[in-house]
């Protein structure tokens, strides 16, 4: 039986839903599951980790692990993978996962695949599917060894209801800190805002909104709907939106039930981050904008006119 080790996605002390998604998939392919949790003061997460679908929990809990550092994090994962004798090591889609996976693969002498969307196990043979070339094509990748380290693309797997695991805790000794790459500071992103990767509705604003007033206008719509508020790169470059709000190939990958692209042209790098959404609404004044090629509903119009009406109409329908 294959053994799958999932790296728990913990942000600000909270276990993200993606951990259960990966563990559910691991169980669905008939694997034995374990999870490795890395951080500081994470003991209280152990029941959640088991409930998410793991049968063994490797815990690396140390004050030195409070801030992400790829070297020590990789050491913890390698330690757990060796103890568990994992065939597959899966990271959730995150910047820390993307930074750590290739290190772990190099250290375990394993194959490495990022952004996988599916996995097929047949006997000892591992195959994965992943997008490439800015999502223009998909690749089927055959793994020639018995070990694969992978980053799973956001939204690729679903959590199964009623899945559970058993509590069986193994404590890892804290890794040495990386003396050659020392974290000096973390400038935290604004907290309290809805995380784009969790939101059921995401509304993104693009260059069509022009300036801060336009951004604020669209933000009000997001507030009404308690939606995640994202952006194209143009508005991040323009200084109107924070880096962590960028949706796209170099930003967040989102797959909400409703995605609204407001004043966004639909460049391929933006599409790479949002075409997994269930339903897409686009508002753009240019009827030829490429965003309309992927939108289920398209409103051709001036966003400064359309957004206030959208707010009114949604309020009406929700009452």
């Amino acid at each position: 039986m294959a053994k799958i080790l999932v790296i728990a996605d913990i942000r600000q002390g909270v276990l993200k839903g993606s951990t259960a998604e990966l563990l559910s998939k691991a169980k669905a392919v008939g694997a034995e599951t374990a999870v490795v949790a890395i951080g500081s003061n994470i003991e209280s997460l152990i029941p959640d980790l088991a409930n998410a679908g793991s049968d063994t929990q490797y815990i690396a809990d140390d004050a030195g692990l409070e801030l992400f550092s790829a070297g020590p994090y990789a050491s913890c994962v390698v330690d757990a993978a060796r103890q568990f004798d994992a065939n597959l090591v899966w990271f959730s889609f995150s910047e820390s996962g993307k930074a750590t996976a290739p290190r772990v693969a190099a250290q375990l002498d394993a194959a490495c695949a990022t952004e996988i969307t599916d996995v097929v196990l047949e006997g000892d043979q591992i195959e994965v599917v992943r997008p490439a070339i800015a999502n223009k094509v998909m690749q089927r990748v055959k793994v020639n060894t018995d070990k694969l380290v992978a980053v799973v693309r956001a939204g690729a797997f679903e959590a199964t209801e009623g899945i559970s695991g058993t509590e069986n805790v193994v404590r890892l000794s804290p890794p040495a800190s990386d003396l050659k790459a020392v974290i000096r500071e973390l400038i935290s992103d604004a907290s309290g805002e809805i995380d784009l990767s969790d939101a059921d509705i995401v509304i993104s604003v693009g260059r069509g909104a022009k300036d801060q007033a336009g951004v604020d206008l669209v933000k009000e719509l997001a507030n009404d709907l308690k939606a995640g508020f994202g952006s194209s790169r143009a508005m991040v470059d323009g200084g109107f939106m924070a880096h962590n709000k960028q949706v796209g190939q170099t930003g967040k990958i989102v797959a909400p039930s409703l995605y609204m692209a407001i004043g966004i042209s639909g460049a391929i790098q933006h599409l790479a981050g949002m075409t997994g959404s269930k339903v897409i609404l686009a508002v753009n004044k240019d009827p030829e904008a490429p965003i309309f090629n992927v939108a289920d509903y398209g409103i051709v119009g001036d966003l400064f006119e359309v957004v206030p009406i959208l707010r009114e109409e949604i309020k009406k329908i929700r009452n």
Binding site: L67, F68, E95, K180, A181, I183, L186, S188, H243
Partner: peptide
């Protein structure tokens, strides 16, 4: 570096 929780400032040897 753009990380998950914000901008991480790292000194490298």
């Amino acid at each position: 570096r753009l990380g998950d929780a914000g901008t991480e400032i790292v000194e490298l040897e």
